[in-house]
Design a protein around this nucleic acid. Sequence first.
DNA 1: AAGAGTCCAGGGTCCATGCCC
DNA 2: TGGGCATGGACCCTGGACTCT
Lengths: 390, 390
Amino acid sequence: MVRGLADPMRNLNLDETEFCLMRVIGLFDEDFGYLSEQGRNSSRQIRDYYIRVLIRHIHVFRSHMPEAEIGCRVSMVMLLISSITKLQHLTNDNIRLSETPIPASMGKYSYQLICGVCSDQATSRHYGIVSCNGCKGFFRRSIWNERAYKCRNGGACKIAKEHRNVCRACRLRRCLEAGMNPRAVQNERDHNAKRGDMSSRKEMSPSAAVQTDPLSCSPSHLTKSHLSGADAYYDEAVAILLSLEHRVMTRVDAPGSSSVTSPAHISSHVPFITAFNNPSIVTPRTPLVITGIRIATVDDALQDWRRAFVIYADWLNEFPEFKLFEHSDKMILAKKRFIPFYWWLLAYWTVQAGCDGVAYANGSYLPRIKELQCVPDVRQTCERMMKELA
Amino acid sequence: MVRGLADPMRNLNLDETEFCLMRVIGLFDEDFGYLSEQGRNSSRQIRDYYIRVLIRHIHVFRSHMPEAEIGCRVSMVMLLISSITKLQHLTNDNIRLSETPIPASMGKYSYQLICGVCSDQATSRHYGIVSCNGCKGFFRRSIWNERAYKCRNGGACKIAKEHRNVCRACRLRRCLEAGMNPRAVQNERDHNAKRGDMSSRKEMSPSAAVQTDPLSCSPSHLTKSHLSGADAYYDEAVAILLSLEHRVMTRVDAPGSSSVTSPAHISSHVPFITAFNNPSIVTPRTPLVITGIRIATVDDALQDWRRAFVIYADWLNEFPEFKLFEHSDKMILAKKRFIPFYWWLLAYWTVQAGCDGVAYANGSYLPRIKELQCVPDVRQTCERMMKELA
DNA sequence: AAGAGTCCAGGGTCCATGCCC
DNA sequence: TGGGCATGGACCCTGGACTCT
Ligand SMILES: [Zn+2]
Ligand SMILES: [Zn+2]
Ligand SMILES: [Zn+2]
Ligand SMILES: [Zn+2]
């Protein structure tokens, strides 16, 4: 069943810019009741501004999609933002990942198309997945003829370009596993005229052999530079955001920094405001390691929470628009929105790492499969951390 | 800005089955804390069952979409369901419609144009007759290229959506018989600097060399029966649901029915349970008029609320699985889930009516534009109604 | 606004090629 | 050696979304 919040996120295949923008929008979204009048206005303005930027971004970067799908994507993104903004705690449930493992092709934003069946070079999508011509034809013929092949190797054949014709049973199995949809195969059609034999065209006059077309086709309409003016504005907003993102994510404290004592949590029960203004007392800024190569322990989860808090504080303190708020509003916002912010961080790391679970920023991950988890309950962990910053 | 819950719904372009299923899932979704142990189990089972049916339905009816978009749709649908299930009140905000007006083409599921050639759904007239996009394109191409097809079946092929591509000779013949006018086909426009070398299509001579194509192909692979078994099961679930839907929506009380006194609200402060078990005391079952041709007054809104409640009660009382619950659980569920149910009804009516606002079931609608609204605030209205059923 | 034409992803067809009996 | 047939790259055709008049 597809229920976790992580699922729509994964299906959307968000890029980095979208992640950043959605996080920002979430920070300043809705539910302004607790802010001052002025804070409310600023908040709404910032939100609306970044929503415009995001919608723009989607339209530009998905311009190959039909309009309807873009609309669908925009709606879904908005729905996701508001769902996540409303999160009061992270629970095992709402960070839960899909039951289906990550398709290997996602997460890498490569533009080279690879056949999902045999890894040959592919030209486009066929029967629902990116696939090569060979696998396309093979699948259609198999479905039409209702072939039931038999493997002579116990069904364990690997399928690759070089030997994809060795075992039809396994090739067809791979096709289905990779997601080819038998329902997308249509009926046989009418026959075409023979090649070269143009008799079905009602015979054109021979004088028509002018062929005044010496390759006048310029490949220049590849740039869809329809848009300008406001675009510069929008590009700049994105650039600023990404650079802030990069700065905060790569910020590292010198190992022997004076304000840093030890990587441990000497700092229980610091007032929130102190921690927020000087986050390195919570934990030093260690480099982020998004690999998800080992299973997280309870300490990993706690430590990641601290590191994420430092990122949060650094990020907000550097975010230009945040400076517009009065001090009290700043604190209210900062307290209120850490959980959604952290959710976005985890979501992004998880996609980056491509591991089968929720990735933390110290190389560990919380496995999707309960039996492997060393962390009793995410929610408890989070609440414990929240208390730490009374 | 795209923020109202109605937007994603509109972008998804849900069909009737999806509406029904989503409503059912919402009824039995999450938040089971207040039910008895047994009620919780039933509820979860029903929900999961209908989620399976819904996912199945989406996969079947959107099988032309790429896999990733289907996944996206499924996720979005789930997100929508849970968002709407959480609604505690209808407010002007969460039933708010998009700022962009409805495209004229949507919402007219009512007129239902049929292609005169192949009986597919049609959008408008082409070349003189109501026809689908496929037949439009086919006719234009055939005329341009002066194609002379040859039927391999003695010219007796039936033309229908599913196999209209099997015999082009008969399809073209049907086009002409149905009244498509070759003279309505204009010349190719050439402005858009074509990239390809379409120059091969020059003027043709009148001599018609009919192509002879003594092919013996069997038109027999029309069956691609890979799938069955579970499909029947699923089809049946959908059929039952739609028939219930239809029954409830068309149920009308005889004008002079005894239990009915007057269309007014004599019935303030009836206990919920009484109203639920005998809904016609709330308001008689008037026919539903989903046209949205006049602006709603406060009375319209109130009356619609009552009518919707009657639909809700009728529907739940007839829904087979609802009978599995204990009496107390029934009441809890029924009280808890009217708002989301009503939301779905309004959403569906609005799409059906295609008016620029929220459609009620008595021919009126709440305009999108504030200045036109006669209803002060939807939320207040709803709350007032809720109190009526203390 | 209606109804022409345009575009193009992704269906299907064709057939040179090669494998197998 | 020849006929049967699967393969896959080149190409044709379809129809939904769109633009243009
Ligand atoms: Zn392949
Ligand atoms: Zn095999
Ligand atoms: Zn048609
Ligand atoms: Zn025919």
